[in-house]
Design a protein around this nucleic acid. Structure first.
Lengths: 144, 144
DNA sequence: ATATAAAAAGATAAAAAGGTCTTTAAATAA
DNA sequence: TTATTTAAAGACCTTTTTATCTTTTTATAT
């Protein structure tokens, strides 16, 4: 459902939320190493997120990526929207253009509630809240 | 979640279930035209499904694709398995290798029941049953 | 037998996703 | 001010997905 790039992006932003501060920036090298993501590829993704103001960065020694309070108040859906767009949430599981509540495809009644639920969770919770749940040990975003 | 090829495959097989008989075979040209799928591409997909005995074919004049009773008793999941494999049902939404009930990612509890439900529906219902529901007007696989 | 209609097979190509490398720009520490 | 460290930018490469084209094979109707 989500592209590789998008999964990398989400995991990275949560990593930054948990580990960076305005005065403790983190380089793409560290994130890539810790999350086991190809470094140059991740750099591209972080660059894109920066360009769209979902994360922040500074160059130079002691520079790197970090999250401002404003960044922390974005939703995970903002990341998805930035990297993949929101098409995935609007497309029929079987690829039908005309699938709808009126003329449901064979799995519409299973897929639709799922899409609604996941969309809702990703849009109403902030990055900060996702990070907080992980800090508390309710959920896990493993380094791997 | 499913590749284009796989969606084409599912729609085509259901089309064949609804419209072909052992003595009324249908060419890839007709299926492609009716379902608005690129014909040479579809031909490849139908070829693959034939090779794996999910559909049947004969060459020559009056030849084409059709479903035997045996074919009709396969599940839609068999098609998915043939074209895409089943990885999609085993992979974490956020791309974590370690995601599980024990160490759930942030959306595990939403995604897991969905995957179970859709997997179940696609595996226990036969092609024949899918086609029957469409014939009855319960579900719709539009020509488009 | 022969022509024909259709699938099978395989080579090719275009587009998208995934990933790498090199150069440039900017911030900081010394 | 200079060297260094880091992100930004952009060119490039690889693989996978999607798609096309051409040739071969085979079944059937005539």
């Amino acid at each position: 459902m989500l592209s590789n790039s998008c999964k990398y992006a989400i995991r990275s932003v949560i990593y930054l939320a948990l580990n960076s501060k305005t005065d403790l920036k983190i380089g793409s090298k560290e994130v890539a190493l810790k999350l086991n993501i190809p470094q140059p590829f991740l750099a591209k993704i972080l660059q894109e997120l920066t360009r769209k103001h979902l994360i922040s960065s500074t160059k130079g020694p002691m520079g790197g990526f970090f999250l401002t309070d404003e960044n922390l108040n974005n939703s995970v859906l903002d990341i998805v929207s930035c990297i993949d767009g929101l098409d995935a949430f609007n497309i029929c599981f079987l690829g039908l253009h005309t699938c709808s509540g009126d003329k449901p495809c064979s799995v519409h009644h299973i897929v639709e509630p799922f899409k609604r639920e996941i969309f809702s969770k990703l849009s109403y919770k902030t990055i900060a809240q996702f990070a907080e749940d992980i800090r508390k040990g309710i959920y896990f975003i493993s380094l791997e």
